[in-house]
Design a protein around this nucleic acid. Sequence first.
DNA 1: ACTAATAGGTTCATAAAATAAACTCAATGA
DNA 2: TCATTGAGTTTATTTTATGAACCTATTAGT
Lengths: 165, 165
Amino acid sequence: MKWQELASQECSIARTLAVIGDRWTLMILRDLFLGASRFEEIQRSLNISRTVLAERLNLLETEGVVRRLAYQQKPTRYKYKLTPKGIDLYPVLMALVHWGDQHYATEVGPPVIHHHQRCGHDFSAMLTCSECGEPVSPYETTVRFASEAITARLPDTDRGGMNRG
Amino acid sequence: MKWQELASQECSIARTLAVIGDRWTLMILRDLFLGASRFEEIQRSLNISRTVLAERLNLLETEGVVRRLAYQQKPTRYKYKLTPKGIDLYPVLMALVHWGDQHYATEVGPPVIHHHQRCGHDFSAMLTCSECGEPVSPYETTVRFASEAITARLPDTDRGGMNRG
DNA sequence: ACTAATAGGTTCATAAAATAAACTCAATGA
DNA sequence: TCATTGAGTTTATTTTATGAACCTATTAGT
């Protein structure tokens, strides 16, 4: 399979990765979430090739993840801003941050601290169930394919994957 | 910046992406979470080049995300199993699924349905605060850098990014 | 008036990475 | 004997990424 074909797969992970799953896009999105907006700003921050940055921003705009806006005329200069669809990627970024904090933080602790203004505490991302609000572990969940009439379940001895049920 | 240098950045997103942020790794992890474990199984499922699959599995093993286990002798055959560190990527995968479901699902709904056994409902991933348990929006959070003594705040007109505070 | 600098790219030659196909090795089955 | 399976490795070709230079428009400095 070629990378381009991912977009036409019937899997939400595949379709998501077709947009944001290549080598630099998530780093670009990190910068946008941290407030960067101009081409030069992102390029200098990541120090990536301008070619790649231009191409990635283009795809993100095509997909509606960012909007390109002129912030001045004469000469016209542009900035990139996350759309609501782009803002919806916040949980993805926070999940990545949390895994990095868990497994790659040094003695001095995580390099970036996230603060939740509503409750007044520094926090980390937690995955919870949209229905009951409780934390979700992969061992407590099953998956089924919408296209399948009959469902299957993995044997209990074969843990470490999502259960089919 | 070259991709390899990401690992040495002082950012948890960068360090995470250095391990799982390339073009196929997250698809491989999806398969592992869905119960796939053998080389051939993953290769056929994704239809990716064997070269890339071998290299990716190697890095994942080096990083402790998967463990390579012999499941038979004569000839020795191996399977790959998520370690606890690998299982910790569940929130990342679920966040990707949810974004795909939100923005790329067709009329018939999401292709894969996730069921929370504890509460008995089909669910989607929700990001909540580790401290207060409430849902978190990027507009209600600020970030600060552990290395910085003085903190800064973005003006209110410049929304769409994490606030620094 | 000349020069440099800034912003937002594009073009182009080179280097790195991905792909597809073939190949290896060990064993099993027909 | 020949084909098949599993888990890769090797190799030739194609695709992507990189870095540097270039382009256009405008303002600032000397």
